[in-house]
Nucleic acid binder design. Structure first.
Length: 276
DNA sequence: AGTGTATCCTGCAGGC
DNA sequence: TGCCTGCAGGATACAC
């Protein structure tokens, strides 16, 4: 579910209320969101203070005074703060982990439990962090950086964009939307993009992600921010989830095609088929 | 190196 | 109403 804009929105809501808090204890309701035995996890976070709240790729990163707490939200993950804001969010329906804090509590809620919560040593996190591709909204992500990276791969551009080692934080919604904005068919081999198409894709990625952050993310079904509110970007989606509806630009019906196990949405006229 | 398939899990929408 | 199928914002492992 959550891609970069959703994780970023969540982080922005959590940062002011979690920074400086101390984890008194963790309660595990569903150990399958952990990667180590529950007891080991609890021991690693007990009495640790949260020193910073950040995002990397699609992950919520809580820096602790000793180690790092990384939350991958998976498809339906959500972090809900209670007793920390003027108003509490709605009660979680599928709590997996509850962190009791020195004031209030933080609940990791996850319907499908594809998400995961890990307490890592700083050096383990450093390696993990280094394996992600560039953050697309940071200054260093220029169109030249993207164009250069595209040249090494024959994989379809939509699949390429989903690989977190190549560019961090892009998921299926924004990959489809970025391809649309660039006028590039989602199945085009990455290295077949011309220089001007790479420029267009770069702009498409940045604009769609920045727009989605500004709108508080996209809520298709489950996504909620720290206050429990949905994101509004769904109204600005041009193709994702809009099979059979008119392309905003040329009015041709949007199509859906499945490859790499995921649906891709595109306008057959604005994003012509690759030669095959 | 790429692709298709399967897996984890729950919920919901649509067809009959 | 109930049952069935397919689908879902992610990530990974496998065989070919």
């Amino acid at each position: 579910m959550p891609e970069l804009p959703e994780a970023e929105t969540l982080v922005r809501g959590l940062r002011p209320v979690l920074t400086g808090r101390r984890i008194v204890q963790a309660r595990i309701h569903h150990a399958d969101v952990l990667r180590v035995p529950a007891r080991r996890f609890r021991d690693r976070v007990r009495q640790r203070r949260i020193t910073a709240v950040e995002r990397r790729a699609k992950n919520v990163v809580l820096r602790l005074d000793d180690g790092i707490l990384v939350v991958n939200l998976g498809m339906t993950g959500w972090l809900a703060p209670f007793g920390l804001r003027a108003e509490d969010p709605p009660r979680p329906t599928h709590p997996a982990v509850t962190f009791r804090l020195d004031r209030g509590r933080l609940v990791f809620d996850d319907v499908r439990r594809f998400g995961c919560v890990e307490a890592l040593d700083i050096d383990v996190w450093r390696d993990r962090d280094a394996a992600f591709g560039p953050e697309p909204l940071e200054e260093g992500f220029t169109w030249q950086v993207l164009a250069q990276r595209l040249t090494t791969s024959r994989s379809p551009i939509r699949s390429w964009l989903l690989d977190q080692r190549r560019v961090a934080g892009v998921g299926n919604i924004y990959a489809c939307e970025a391809c649309y904005r660039a006028g590039v068919h989602p199945r085009r081999p990455a290295r077949s993009l011309s220089e001007s198409e790479a420029r267009g894709l770069h702009a498409g990625i940045r604009d769609v992600l920045a727009g989605a952050v500004a709108a508080g993310g996209t809520t298709i079904r489950n996504y909620r921010d720290a206050g429990g509110d949905p994101g509004e970007f769904v109204r600005q989606l041009a193709v994702y989830g809009r099979e059979g509806e008119p392309c905003p630009r040329c009015k041709t019906d949007v199509e859906r095609v499945v490859f790499g196990n995921r649906s891709a949405f595109f306008c057959p006229r604005c994003q012509p088929e690759p030669d095959s």
